[in-house]
């Protein structure tokens, strides 16, 4: 009797999670996968084939954009890590109490406004008639207006800015759990600052680094707003292609195929990243 009731409680508690998984994640993906395998042969006539995937392979623009999105996202992830690590180390190890909370909050505050507004903020700074351009002209460092938008650097800036919090949070958590006496012990045994970073701090923070990198990479790869707004027409971001297939071209079949290619790409790169760093998904996700 008691076991029946606890079984019921177990299923009831699990139900929201199951419903969410099945209806919002699994079903749409199955549906999309089926759509991606359809080839339009006539009006309302479809055949099952890999034709949509073949289109991707035969059109250099598509797989160039695909590759570009991948390496730009990897670059954004690495850059975010390099900027986020010292920040996280400072927050986790060199500050206490109030300062720590304040700094942490300052990382969070930009996320109180929507991504769209944040990106427009960057546009105000970077555009031809924007703040930076005017300051440069005022200081006499530039003769005329400088356009800083619509290039890869602008995209990179936007991506790093958008992802920073998602790198800092798991890193601070990981570094917080590092006992100060381990660092002191390292010094005591004659290690230089760099050796301590390499042999003690980074190995300890590895699960945090990997989980932060996974999240930032996924966010960058799947980002649509930032590359489109800051990169303009030349942004060539794969999500832009998916959008135009679905919305502009009404080619849901090709759009779905692109969606699945992107899913495959991100899974593959995360897998390679985990293998290279010797981490497991379970370990890194438990961290964050």
């Amino acid at each position: 009797m008691a076991t029946d009731r606890s079984k019921l409680a177990f299923w009831l508690l699990l139900a929201p999670c199951l419903i969410w998984l099945v209806t919002l994640i699994i079903l749409p993906h199955v549906g999309m996968f089926l759509v991606s395998l359809r080839e339009k042969v006539g009006v309302r006539e479809y055949e099952t084939s890999f034709a949509n995937y073949a289109v991707f392979l035969n059109e250099p623009l598509y797989w160039n954009t695909f590759a570009r999105t991948a390496y730009m996202s990897i670059a954004a992830t690495v850059l975010t890590l390099f900027i986020g690590f010292p920040i996280s180390y400072y927050i986790a190890k060199l500050t206490r109490g109030r300062t720590k909370t304040t700094l942490f909050l300052m990382c969070l505050i930009p996320f109180w406004v929507s991504e769209l507004v944040r990106t427009f903020g960057w546009m105000i700074l970077l555009r031809e008639t924007g703040v930076f351009s005017n300051v440069l002209q005022y200081l006499g460092l530039a003769a005329g207006p400088v356009e800083m938008l619509y290039n890869d650097a602008a995209i990179m800036t936007g991506l790093v800015y958008t992802s920073m919090l998602f790198m800092v949070v798991p890193l601070v958590t990981a570094l917080d759990s590092l006992d100060d006496s381990l660092i002191e012990a390292g010094y005591d045994l004659g290690a230089s600052g760099f050796a301590i970073l390499r042999e003690i701090i980074i190995p300890h923070a590895m699960p945090g680094i990997v989980s932060g990198c996974i999240v930032v990479f996924m966010l960058s790869l799947g980002n649509y707003l930032t590359p489109i707004l800051l990169g303009g027409k030349d942004s060539l971001w794969f999500t832009g292609l998916i959008y135009s297939q679905f919305i502009t071209r009404f080619n849901w079949e090709l759009g779905s195929a692109f969606g699945f290619l992107l899913l495959g790409l991100s899974s593959f790169i995360v897998f390679v990243g985990l293998k290279l760093t010797g981490q497991s998904l379970g370990k890194t996700m438990a961290q964050s």
Binding site: S181, E184, A185, Y187, S192, E199, I200, H204
Partner: peptide, 18 residues
Amino acid sequence: PNKRPVSMVFQHLALFPM
């Protein structure tokens, strides 16, 4: 400290778990 000819055994030993 990393140049001093002294070594320290810490209260919680501070062995490197990694």
